[in-house]
Design a protein around this nucleic acid. Structure first.
Lengths: 246, 246
DNA sequence: CAGCTCATGTGAACGGCTTTTACATGAGCT
DNA sequence: AGCTCATGTAAAAGCCGTTCACATGAGCTG
C-alpha cells in the first residue's frame, strides 16, 4: 500500500522506489514509540529494508529527517487548526474554543509529530522553512484572536489581539505539554485536559470582559457569514466556567 | 574548591575523592551547553578526568545521572518558588505574581535544570523520588492558589483552588517553554515573557472576580501574618493589565 | 535495441558512545 | 602489617552516525 515496488515485484530489487517516503513513515512510527531522542536513523533504514547508508541519499543527516517530520507536523497542525476555526462559524467564541481543543487533540493524537515539533530540541529558528510553517500555524490562532478582539464589549479597553493570541497559545501549549502527553497524561487531575483548558480560556476571556455564558440553547441564532455577534447573554455564567458542583 | 583532593595533592591519585559530585557538576554544564539530548556520559567522565567506566560506580547508567539532576532541579525549583511565595507577604496577590515570575526566572537562569526536568523526555512517573519532588514543587503553587481562592469576592462562586493552581501552572509552563527558553526566546514578541505572563495571570484572575488593580501606592497597609485582605480597590484597572498604550 | 549516465543503494571502515567484565589501587579498619 | 571493599582502569562488544568507493539499473538518446 505504501511502496508500489514491493507489491508489484517479488522482493523489491536494488532500488526501493519510494525510500524517502518510507523513511519518513518509519521514523514517524519510531518516534511515536520511543520519542525523538530514542529514534535512530539506522532503525528507520532497517525498517525500510535498506542499508544504513541509504538514507543519506535523501537526508543530509538524522537532523534533517527530524526536521522534515517537524515540518510536516506544522503543516498538519495548521490544517487542523484551520479546520477547527472554520472561519469563526457558527460563532466566534464557539470556534475559538474549538481551536483550543484542536490543539490538545493534535498533541494527543499525533504524538510523533508533536514530539518532533516541540520536544525534540531541534533549533526551529535555524530552519527558515520550519520557522515559517510554525508561524503559519500560529497565525491561525492569531487570526482567531483578531476576530475575537474585535468583539470586545464597547465599555472596556480593547485588548491587543497579538497578546491574546500569545496568551491562548501559551495556555494551550502548557496544558498539552503538562497534561496531555505521555506519562504526564497519567497525572491524576480533577478534570480532563480538555475541560481544564476550556475553563482556563473561558475565565481568561471573562477577564477581558467577554460574555462567556454557554452558547444560546437553540441552534445558530446568528447568520452564517461573519455575524455582528452582539453579546447575547448576561456575562456571568451560572456556576462559573468550571461547571456545576453537582 | 570543588574536589579537595585536587587542591591538596598534586594531580589527584588513583581515587578521585568526589567523583559523584564532579560528574553532576560536569553534566550540568554540558546540558546547559548542548541540551540533555546532546549531553554524553563519556564527556562528563572526561571532564571530571576519569575513565569512561568510572561513572558506573556512582550511577546505574546515563539515565540515572539525568534523573539525579532533574531531582536536584525540582528541589531547587521548589525552594525558589517557596522563597518567591514568601508565605503570601506582603499580600497574597503580589506574592502570587512573584511566584509566576520565579517560574520564568528559573527557566531562564537554570536552563540545565529546566532542560533535565521538562525537556529531556525522561519518564518522571517511573521514578517515585522524581515524581514526589515534582509534586512538592507544584504544591507551592497549589498552596498559593488555596490562599488566593479563599479571598474570592463574596458574591461570586468560589473557584476550586486545585483548578486555579493547574491553570497558573499551565500558563507559566506554556510561556516558559514557548518564549523563555533557548532559541524560542528569540521570537519577536510585543512584550517580554515576564510581562506576557503577568498580564495573562492578571486577566485570568480578573475573570475569576478578583480585583486586580495594582497594589496600593503606599507601603504595606496590611499586618504581616495572614492579613484579612479585604479587596482594596475598584476592580477595573486603569487601562487593562497589559499596560498603558503609551 | 545498444549504450550512456546519473540517481539511488551497498559494504566496509572510522570514530564515538554505552555498558560490562576482569583487574588494579589504596583508604580505612583491625 | 595486613585485609577488605569502595572506587578507578583497560579492554572489549555492540550500537550509531557518517563517509567513501563502488554497484545497480531506470530512463534517456540515438
Amino acid at each position: 500500500m505504501s511502496w508500489r515496488k514491493e507489491t508489484r515485484r517479488a522482493e523489491r530489487g536494488y532500488h526501493h522506489g519510494n525510500l524517502k517516503e518510507a523513511l519518513l513513515q518509519a521514523a514517524l512510527g519510531l518516534i511515536a514509540e520511543k520519542g525523538a531522542a530514542g529514534f535512530t536513523f539506522a532503525d528507520a533504514a532497517r525498517m525500510a529494508g535498506v542499508s544504513a547508508a541509504a538514507p543519506y541519499r535523501h537526508f543530509r543527516d538524522r537532523d534533517e529527517l527530524l526536521s522534515s517530520i517537524a515540518l510536516r507536523g506544522f503543516e498538519q497542525f495548521e490544517s487542523r487548526l484551520t479546520a477547527a476555526w472554520d472561519d469563526g462559524r457558527p460563532d466566534t467564541l464557539t470556534a475559538f474554543e474549538r481551536v483550543g481543543k484542536a490543539y490538545l487533540a493534535f498533541a494527543r493524537e499525533e504524538p510523533a509529530f508533536y514530539n518532533a515539533m516541540f520536544e525534540s530540541g531541534l533549533p526551529v529558528d535555524a530552519n527558515p522553512a520550519l520557522q515559517a510553517a510554525s508561524e503559519r500555524a500560529f497565525n491561525i490562532i492569531r487570526a482567531a484572536a483578531e476576530r475575537l478582539a474585535a468583539l470586545a464589549p464597547p465599555g472596556t479597553p480593547r485588548p491587543p489581539a497579538m497578546m491574546m493570541a500569545l496568551h491562548i497559545w501559551s495556555m494551550s501549549h502548557g496544558v498539552a505539554s503538562l497534561f496531555s502527553r505521555g506519562d504526564a497524561a497519567r497525572r491524576k487531575l480533577p478534570m480532563s485536559p480538555d475541560e481544564l483548558l476550556e475553563a482556563e480560556v473561558l475565565i481568561y476571556l471573562r477577564g477581558l470582559g467577554f460574555p462567556t455564558d454557554r452558547r444560546p440553547p437553540a441552534k445558530s441564532a446568528e447568520p452564517p457569514p461573519v455575524p455582528p455577534e452582539a453579546s447575547s447573554g448576561s456575562g456571568v455564567p451560572p456556576g462559573g466556567p468550571w461547571g456545576r458542583p453537582k
